[in-house]
Simulated scan of single mutants.
Amino acid sequence: MNVIVTAYNPNWPALYEQEAQAIRQILGKELIAIHHIGSTSVPGLFAKLIIDIMPVVAHIEAVDPLSAQFEALGYEVMGEFGIPGRRYFRKGGDNRTHQIHIFEQTNQHDIIRHLAVRDFLRCHPQDAKAYGELKQQLALRFPQDIESYCDGKDAFVKDLEHRAVLWYQSR
């Protein structure tokens, strides 16, 4: 997978909303909330060209029978994909455009950590700038190696997530 990091695009919220509408239709009454997360949700932040979407549902098991509807939208069904209790879907193959991370409303740990990082970066532009610069450097260093790119961000992201969750919970 090619690693391309680009300047913030003001069209990303509209792209999120367009996809969120289709997801709302699929999840129906099971949907509690839906959030734009990840780097494309932070104005001004450099990001890979992937819209991350986090629906929160009443019952995670209710998502499984809907897999064919997500496939009809072009998503690949990935199951938990390394995070217990999540349902993960990705769209676009090697040129991924969207990722869906569905969590049950009782999974506050994963929901809060995603929202905390997003909100922290929105409120702390110096941290967002440092994160964006790191991503740019790693993309230049590993333009065709997504695993090395992710490994290069790992320590920074873990520290960021820790600080973000503390900040989020103290508000």
Rank of each mutant, 00 (worst) to 15 (best):
Q144C: 08
Q144V: 06
N9R: 14
G28D: 03
N11T: 14
S148P: 05
T97F: 01
G93H: 13
L49P: 08
D127K: 09
A116P: 09
G44V: 07
A139Y: 07
G82A: 08
V63D: 01
L73F: 08
L140K: 14
E76R: 13
A58V: 08
D52A: 10
Q126S: 13
F46H: 12
G74L: 11
D145C: 09
E147I: 14
G44S: 05
L121T: 00
A130P: 02
L73M: 09
A128P: 09
E80W: 05
R87V: 03
C123G: 09
E17R: 15
R90L: 00
R118P: 07
Q105R: 13
P55N: 10
D52L: 06
R90D: 10
A68H: 13
E80I: 07
A128N: 08
E104M: 02
D52F: 05
C150Q: 14
Y149Q: 05
A72S: 14
L45P: 03
K135R: 15
I50N: 02
P55F: 02
P10Y: 10
Y16G: 02
G79S: 06
L15D: 14
E133Y: 09
K91M: 12
I53K: 04
Q126A: 13
L15F: 15
A58Y: 05
V3R: 01
D119P: 12
R86M: 06
I111D: 04
Q105T: 06
L27S: 03
A130T: 12
A14T: 13
D52I: 06
P65L: 09
I146Y: 01
A128W: 03
E19P: 07
F120Q: 04
G85K: 07
A128E: 05
V42F: 11
H109S: 11
P43N: 12
I4Y: 07
E133T: 11
P43W: 08
G74M: 11
E80N: 03
L31M: 13
L115S: 08
Q21R: 14
D64N: 07
Q69V: 08
H36N: 13
Y88W: 12
F120A: 04
S39A: 13
I112L: 08
G38S: 12
T6D: 10
F120I: 11
G132H: 03
E30A: 03
I83W: 06
R113A: 04
R87P: 04
I60K: 02
Q69W: 02
V42A: 11
I34Y: 00
V42P: 09
I100A: 00
T106L: 05
A68G: 10
A128M: 11
F70T: 03
Y16P: 10
H114L: 04
P143D: 10
G92R: 07
K48A: 02
N11E: 15
A130E: 15
I51P: 01
A14H: 14
A14W: 04
I23E: 03
D145Q: 12
L121I: 06
S39L: 04
R118V: 05
V42R: 11
F46T: 02
R118I: 07
I23V: 15
F70P: 00
I50L: 00
C150S: 11
F81Y: 15
Q21E: 15
Q144K: 10
I100N: 00
K91W: 05
A139Q: 09
Y8E: 07
A128H: 07
V3P: 00
I23N: 03
I112W: 02
A68F: 06
Q25I: 11
I50M: 04
N107D: 15
H101Q: 13
R118M: 10
